[in-house]
């Protein structure tokens, strides 16, 4: 784990970090084609699964895994919390509840926790990463109604029109299939 300057905790996948170092070292010595592949892999699009305040909905995880499989993309998990004191609890939760099922599904995954103003932190995250192919809202279902946002003052609304892709929130409609998905 590494603490970055701009008030965030960055937890990087160790394989990814190794690749980055390997690439940097290799670029100077041998500009071979294989390095291009690695760089391409590192900067590819991802499914961004967005959580806030340590709230994780199971269906968003299941849906994200299916979507990632369908689009053949890795998953990036971003947890936004309001203050630094919640970071370690959130980190523990991410490891326990999210990383294992995603890795078991053999989908590439990276995770990051940011604290502070959530809208700002999300924009900063998007600015420092390549645009996600889609964003899945993974937290509080009360935020989501069948007709759309139920909380017009939710911080995500501040970002209307600023996001590069849609945000989708899955809501369970069939418990039997959901159960099968969870078992699978």
């Amino acid at each position: 784990m590494q603490r970055a300057r701009s008030g965030r905790i960055l937890v990087s996948n160790s394989i990814e970090a190794t690749y980055r170092l390997a690439c940097l070292a290799s670029i100077l010595q041998q500009p071979s084609i294989s390095i291009w592949g690695v760089i391409g892999m590192l900067r590819e699009k991802k499914i961004l699964v967005l959580f806030e305040e340590g709230i994780i909905r199971g269906e968003s995880l299941l849906y994200s895994i299916e979507l990632a499989r369908r689009l053949n993309l890795p998953i990036a998990v971003l947890m936004l919390v309001s203050d630094e004191s919640k970071v370690f609890v959130a980190e523990d939760l991410l490891v326990r509840e999210l990383m294992e099922p995603i890795e078991r599904a053999q989908i590439g995954v990276s995770r990051e926790i940011r604290y502070g103003d959530k809208a700002t932190e999300l924009l900063k995250y998007l600015a420092s990463n390549s645009s996600p192919a889609a964003i899945v809202w993974g937290s509080d279902q009360k935020t989501v109604g069948r007709l759309g946002w139920r909380k017009p003052h939710h911080w995500l609304n501040k970002l209307a029109g600023l996001l590069p892709c849609s945000i989708v929130a899955p809501i369970s409609k069939n418990r039997v299939i959901k159960q099968k998905l969870m078992e699978g």
């Binding site: 069948r146 899955p170 369970s172 959901k178 998905l181």
Partner: peptide, 21 residues
């Protein structure tokens, strides 16, 4: 079809700037 299409309803949030309330 993929099981998630049957299991979940998906709500998309994409409000264009200046949309009517």
């Amino acid at each position: 079809l993929p099981p998630d299409l049957r299991a979940f309803e998906t709500v998309a949030f994409r409000r264009d700037k200046g949309a009517m309330k």
